[in-house]
Structure formats: C-alpha cells, structure tokens
Simulated scan of single mutants.
Amino acid sequence: MSPMKILSKLMLLVLPVLAACGGSGSDDQVCTGGAALEKNCVPKSTNTLPEGIWNGATTTGLAAQTLVLENGQYFSVYTSSGNFVWMTEGIITAKDGAFNDPATVALSNTGSLMAGVMNGSFIAKTSLSATTNINTTPITEPLIFNGNYNTVYDTPLTVADVLGNWTNPATVTTSASVTFAADGTLTGSQGACTFTGTVKPRATGKHVLDGSLLFTSGACSAGINVAMPIEATVINGQLTFVGVTPQRSSAFSLTATR
C-alpha cells in the first residue's frame, strides 16, 4: 500500500476522535481540548438574578415575602401575624448563585428609613437565603431570611384578577381598603392616609402589576400630592402593595384581602 493511502486512512481514524473531544460542552459548561486530546470542562460563570417571588421566614420568626424583578429591583416585606414590621428595597447584582446590594433601604413600622447592606445566595426557582444588616436602632441584629420559590410568579396577573374591594385582614390592626375598577384605576386608604392610583400588568407577563399611587392626605408619611411607583402581587388571596419614592425618601407597604 502506498504511503499516501496509509496517510488517508490514519486521517479518517483521527477525525472522529477530534470531533468527540472538541471545545464545546453542555449549556452550563465551557470545555477546551488539551494537548493529549482530553476534554477539560468548567462551569460557565453566570449573572442570573434570583428573579421571582420567594416566601419564607426569618430566623427571628417573622413571615417574609420577597419579590425580585427581572431588572434586579427587589422588595422584601416582613410581618408578624400579618402586621407590617419591616420592608427592604434595593437593586441587587448576582454572580454564580450569590447576590448582594451594598445600598439597601429599610423601612420600619415606626416610619424610619435606614440604610443597610444585603447579601445572600440562591438556587434558581428553588430556594433563597439572604442576610440584611442595618446595625442601627431599632434593629441591631442581622435580619436573616430563608425562602422558597413560589411558582405563581410564572403565571400572569391581570387587572381582572383584582377587581373590587380589598380590606385589611382580621389580624392586621391598621385599617386598609383598596377598590379597583376595570380600567385599572384605584382608590384606597390605610389608616388616615388616602390615595388614588392606577395599575396594569407587568410587560414580562409575570404575577406582578405595575402601578403608581398619588397620596391625597397629609396623614400619609410620603406627604400630600406625592406620587410613588408601586408593584402589586396576589399570593394565596392576599394583595400586597410595595413601593418607594424615586428619591428613596419614603416607602409604602399595604396588605389586604377580599
């Protein structure tokens, strides 16, 4: 057999080996071929955010609900027997299952706004753990939250889902009332604070309504005639409003049921 025919057969034998040991891996890996044609794979780095609704509790026994939007903005509401205790808000960044916010804002049930730091870890659409440090009175211990993903986040929420009147649950001491019309307009009150507003489904098709409130009485902590963007969700028949002013000088949280 001629040297050329032998070389051709050797090339045919080698080509399948190279194809099997190429530089691509699975969707979550980056692979390279070594000098001995071995395949070396490492996990891809990812900046995926812990987007979703997460329900759970703190290590101090507070019930907690966290909403993380696709842009990294989050709201965490902490309650005791349905009564508001804390809310934190900010923008997180994430890498490889870890996330942080060096400039979270915390609102207490006394109306105080304080700065803090939040960090944590998550498994996408499964579980999340976060620690918030305020380190000022009235909270000096870390606020540690552990939660599970709520799959309702992946179902749309529409104006039709919230039509009618909502009031504070029996366990909530502060009176609240919100009435939605078919066109997305609303009127409401929380204690002596009154407001009007509008809502519409979030463009992502998730279980969130985007909206805005205009506070119409001097009893509102934000002040009269102050506008605030809000997000609304309904979990297990309970409506939750959360929002902060663009300047992050005032925050608002409301819970109601039918």
Rank of each mutant, 00 (worst) to 15 (best):
L49M: 02
L49E: 01
E51P: 11
G52E: 10
G52V: 12
I53M: 01
I53V: 01
I53C: 00
W54D: 12
N55P: 03
N55I: 08
G56P: 08
A57L: 04
A57W: 11
T58Y: 06
T58I: 03
T59V: 01
T60L: 00
G61R: 14
L62F: 14
L62S: 08
A63D: 15
A64C: 06
Q65W: 02
T66K: 09
L67S: 01
L67W: 08
L67C: 00
V68R: 05
L69F: 00
L69P: 04
E70F: 00
E70L: 00
E70G: 01
G72H: 02
G72F: 02
G72N: 02
G72L: 01
G72M: 01
Q73C: 08
Q73R: 09
Q73H: 12
Y74T: 04
F75S: 08
F75Y: 11
F75T: 02
S76T: 12
V77H: 15
V77Q: 15
Y78L: 15
T79Q: 12
S80Y: 07
S80L: 14
S81E: 09
G82M: 04
N83S: 07
F84C: 15
F84G: 14
F84H: 12
W86R: 07
T88V: 07
T88H: 00
E89G: 08
G90D: 05
I91F: 11
I91K: 10
I91Y: 15
I91G: 06
I92C: 02
T93C: 08
T93R: 07
T93W: 00
K95N: 05
D96S: 12
D96T: 08
D96M: 07
D96P: 10
A98E: 15
A98V: 10
F99M: 10
F99Y: 11
F99A: 06
F99W: 10
N100E: 13
N100H: 11
N100P: 10
D101V: 15
